[in-house]
Each structure stands twice: as structure tokens, then as C-alpha cells.
Amino acid sequence: MVSALPGIGSAQTRAQEAAERVTDPELPMLTLADLGVLRGVEAKADGAVVVRVTPTYSGCPAMAEMRSRLAAELRAAGFHEVRVKTELQPPWTSDWISEAGRRKLAEHGIAPPGSAPPSDAGPVPLVLSPTRRVVPCPRCGSGDTEELSRFAATSCRALHRCRSCREPFEHFKEI
């Protein structure tokens, strides 16, 4: 960590570093920064810190825990007034997951998302033909996999099975 010299600049750095250390409650191998839900950290001149976060899904039950962890980490870094704002626009997209985040997901057996469909392309078409993208198995790399359920343990993940190594695995959905 950088030395905590007094002044706004160092407060900003300390706040940023503290917020970026906080991990996701449901995917603890990822930080909130990796996941792209941490949208901004700002140390104010009066000593307060404003953190902006965005939910992955409207009903994400982990939002409260995220806010709590951010506040606790920033308090531990010496900031006494922490405001965590929930932001809705622009809506979160899996494209915001960092490269490091994608690597960590794969290392933990969760296939990272591909590119999300463009959000400004007009009405979302319903596609019923089986033309789905192949999701490679994060364990053995085989492309011979099938989707078991579009909704797994959480809204953001789907459940797949590898026909080669026979293992089930989760896939972080494109959204």
C-alpha cells in the first residue's frame, strides 16, 4: 500500500485500494472490482468517501452484503463516513468482468461469459432453434458440453455438463 500521507490525493488512493480489496459474497474468488459492480470511489475533501455500486441483477440479494463489506473495509482504512450508492444506469453487463476476474472464474471451474448481446439493438428476438454457442468445459477444455439449466445457484450462472469428463460446471451468463 502507498504511504498514507495527509492530503486528498493519498486519501483517494487509500479509499480506492480499500474498496478494490473487497470480495464478492457469492463469488469470493472475485473482488467487486473484478466483477465490475464497483463503479467508482471518491474521497471527498471533508473526509467522507462515496462509493458507487451497481447490482448484477435487480433482485441480487448480495447487494446489502456488498454495501456492508465496503463500508467495513473503508472504515478499517480510516474513513469514518462512508456512503455507498446504488446505481442502476447504465445497467451492469457481464462485459464489465475484468480479465483477471475471467481467469479466476475459470480457475474455479466456472466458465467465464462470452460477449453480451448489444443492449441498443432493438427488441430482443426470441430464438428457439438450437443454435447456442458452445461453452467449453473449464475443467478439461472439451467443447462437447450441454446446458442443463439456464438458472443455477444464482441468477447470474447457468448449469452445464461436460460430456467428455462427465463433470457438471457452471457458466457465468452473458447479460
Binding site: 458507487r52 446489502a64 450508492k85 442502476l88 444506469q89
Partner: peptide, 18 residues
């Protein structure tokens, strides 16, 4: 500001329930 904030649960760091 293009970002839309909603005041859901912003009231304090210890009120992190929903």
C-alpha cells in the same frame, strides 16, 4: 449525470439488510 442512483439502503453502513 447519466447515472441513476436509487436511495436503496443508503442510510448507513450498519443497515445492510434488506
Amino acid at each position: 449525470d447519466e447515472r441513476i442512483s436509487l436511495a436503496l439502503g443508503e442510510e448507513g453502513p450498519d443497515d445492510a439488510r434488506w
